[in-house]
Every structure is written in C-alpha cells, then in structure tokens.
Write a protein that binds this DNA or RNA. Sequence first.
DNA 1: CGAGGCCTTGAGTGTCCTCAAGTCGCGTGG
DNA 2: CCACGCGACTTGAGGACACTCAAGGCCTCG
Lengths: 242, 242
Amino acid sequence: MHKSVPNNSLKTACSTCNLRKLCLPVNLSNIEMARLDDLITRKGVYRHGSILYRSGDKFQALYAIRTGFFKTQILNEDGREQVTGFQMAGEIIGMDGISSDTHTCDAVALEDCEICEIPFNRLEDLGRELPPLQRHLHRILSREIVRDQNIMLLLGSMRAEERLAAFLLNLSQRFAVRGYSPTSFQLRMTRQEIGSYLGLKLETVSRALSHLQENKLINVRNRSLEILCLPGLQACIGKRAR
Amino acid sequence: MHKSVPNNSLKTACSTCNLRKLCLPVNLSNIEMARLDDLITRKGVYRHGSILYRSGDKFQALYAIRTGFFKTQILNEDGREQVTGFQMAGEIIGMDGISSDTHTCDAVALEDCEICEIPFNRLEDLGRELPPLQRHLHRILSREIVRDQNIMLLLGSMRAEERLAAFLLNLSQRFAVRGYSPTSFQLRMTRQEIGSYLGLKLETVSRALSHLQENKLINVRNRSLEILCLPGLQACIGKRAR
DNA sequence: CGAGGCCTTGAGTGTCCTCAAGTCGCGTGG
DNA sequence: CCACGCGACTTGAGGACACTCAAGGCCTCG
C-alpha cells in the first residue's frame, strides 16, 4: 500500500513543510538548514477558493505549499483566462513576481491548503552565504521555465485526447513522487479548469475523458480518477501528430 | 529616422555586447562592471543555420546575443517539434539548462549571429558578491517564466489571426526598444517556424497574413513586413474570445 | 538558366467549438 | 428528512475554423 504521508518524521518548520523537498538536493548542514528554517514562516490555512496572491499584488515572497492544491491563472485585458498550472504539496509558487516586483497571475486554493512563506529578499541574502542554496533556487526557477515550455509543446502540437493523456500522466507521476498512488487519485479541479489549462472547452474535456474510459484506459466518475493502463495512456500521446 | 545601431559608444566587451542591457537596471560601479565584463567572452560568429547548443548538451553557460536572431525549439520523442521562442540582440538564452545541468532545447541561428558566453558558475560566484547582479539574474529568469506563460495564454485561448497579430506586435515592440523601426522590419524565420511557434500550420500562417493585408493592417511581401496600423492590429486581439 | 526551397491559394475534410437539453451530486433550508 | 436549487458534468447536433492535400508561382543561389 501507499502511505498517506511521504516523509516519516522530520521536525523543523521547514522539514515538516514539504520544504524538505525544496532543500533535498542541497547539501546543507543542520545549522545551515536551521537558518533556512528561520526564514520560513507558516501562514495559516487557506480555505478552498481563497486567494494567496492576485495579479498586481506586490511581490514579496515565494510560497511553499505544505498541503493542498492550488491553481495559477492569468487574466487578459479582454477577460480571457488561462490556467497556467496546478501546484501540489511540496511545490513552490510565486516566481512570476520576481521580474517586476509584481505578481502577474492569481494563485487560488482548490482545497484547504497550508502554506509556508519565504520572504524573497531574505532568501537572496541567505543564498549569497550558502552557494548550494543559491544554486538550488536557480534550479527551481529554471525548472519552471522547462515546465512551461513543455506545456507550450502540448498546447502547440497535441490533439485533445493527447493533451488529456499527458495531463493525467503528469498528475500521476507527481502523486507517485509524493508517495501516493499513481493510478488512483482525486481531481481537485473542475472540467472547466482542466480545459483552460489544456486549451480546450469543458465539453471537449468531458468527451475526451469518456472516450479514454470507453477504451478501458481509465475509470472516471466525477472527480475520482483511476488509471487502468499507464502504458496505454502513454501510447495515446504521439499516435498521430497534429 | 531610426538609427540602425541602438547604443552610441560603449567600449568594454560587455558594453559593446547588448549586454549593457543585461546590466542596465543594475547599479554597478565601473569596477564592478569590469568584473562582469571579465566573465564574458566573445564566441565567434554563428553562421545562419548553425547550432549554439542542442538538447542534451551539458549546460555550462548562458549566452547573450550581440547581433542576430535565434530560435529555440524542443523536440519530442515522437519527432514533434515546437519553436519555444525567437531571440534577438540583447537577449539571453540558455536558461533552460540550469535545472538539470543539461540543455532541454536546441538553439539555432536564423541569420549570422555574434554571441557572448557567460560561464554560469562564475556568474553565480559574482552574484554572491554583487547583490544587484544576483537580483538581476533572478529577474531575467522570472521574466522568462512570465514570457512563457503569456505564450501559454496565446496558445490556449486565441484564434489564428489573433495569434499572428500578437506575434507581430511583440516583434514590433522589441524592435522599437532596440531603436529600430517598430513598423517596418524583416521576418527572420519561415512561415513554418512562425507556425510552430504559434501552434499553427504554415498554410494557416500564410492565410492569416494575407487576410491582415486585405484588411490594410499590414503589408507583407516575402520576409519583409510593414505594419500599417498598430491600433488596428491591437484591436484584432480579443475581437472574439475562443 | 535550372533546381529547390519557400510561399500562396484552393478545395475538401476533420476536430473541436457552440448551443442546448438533461442528469447527477451536494448543500441548504423548509 | 426530504425538497429544492445550483453548480458541475455529460451527451447530442450542427457549424466554424484550422488542417490536409494538391497545384502552381516566386525568389534565391548555384
């Protein structure tokens, strides 16, 4: 069975946060770790639907998600909206704000969430003292760039069903990394939100899900999703380039 | 008239590079500037079609484009290809490589280009000594994230003609910043490459260009493009959400 | 002057969107 | 406890937009 909590027993603020993940590939001594912990403050619980930051807000901190699920979205002048990502426990959000000291997207809780705040100025300061931390920050920023470019590939070149398969496989993998089942999980977002993320309409998402189910690749009922055949889903991608 | 070279007379390696742009918002003393210059080495000329780095190459440096035009593209397992960006003089490329010490896309010269190389380890080292430089690097990384997310919005929610209008306006603005004409310029890329970037087929790009021309918003003949009505192009975007 | 790449344009098709109707599930209040 | 209402979801029918395939013209460069 999969355990419901990935880490066994870590005590500091940073560690009990999934922030240990943030720090994991970094070789920091306990003392250095403590200094990092020192930066980080736990903000309270964000209830389902509440907003961590909005486009236009002054940028001051990165946020590490301890528990729960977020979405980030951009809003156009003309009211168009695009979900740019779904973030889960152990991931960092807010990096869009660094470039102009102003957030450029909204971050909305998709369920009740616990959040850690990392003041960015102080993180930069500490980064200057701890090169591995500095390097790690750069990696995180770069990883976000690579992630976004892969979504561009998805949006630019895949058909509806491929996009959905890629999306489900991505979720599956991220759950697996966290010690949850990679084949059975709850979708935290609406069809509409999935559609916005994948550049599709909600009806198309619904139809594609139904179609994958007809093909016995998944079972889906409301928000609960079961992947019946991971290789089959992978094979969906690239069946026929667009 | 617009001058053909934006900067008037700056002497150091870094400054003659459009790297002054990299450093512009940073308050660095001359001595500090010189240290930054010291990092940077001019690599020779990259001829049209030559490759600066490939997906899979070891990441060692960022590159500043002194002159010329690049494209970056990802290639899927199944041979699918997506142009992720067009970069012009004064812009920095290679940031995709930081996250895994390996480049994740190809960078290809679209015309003869001059390049400056900035070894990343040394840039990080210097960043620890010069906080404004560190901050600037973070801004550049974040700006790339914001840029990518705006392309996601484009790919996810705009129709063909809107995408093309947005693309042309983006080019226009970047030329303007560099002191070139915002309304009359050469396209350095093929219709196929524009299409890949915008998630369209080359025929669709061609048709959309023709249509914008019919509407007297642009003049296009081969690679030379003239924008007849900037506000008109802007109005194209958001006419009708998808 | 010829070859080849790039581009344009047309005709037909397919995928996804739009609009619409109806079901399901959940929370609220009677 | 059940009725109600609302939002989320599914499914169908029809249409629009972008894709595919194809033919032909233009420009560049050898």
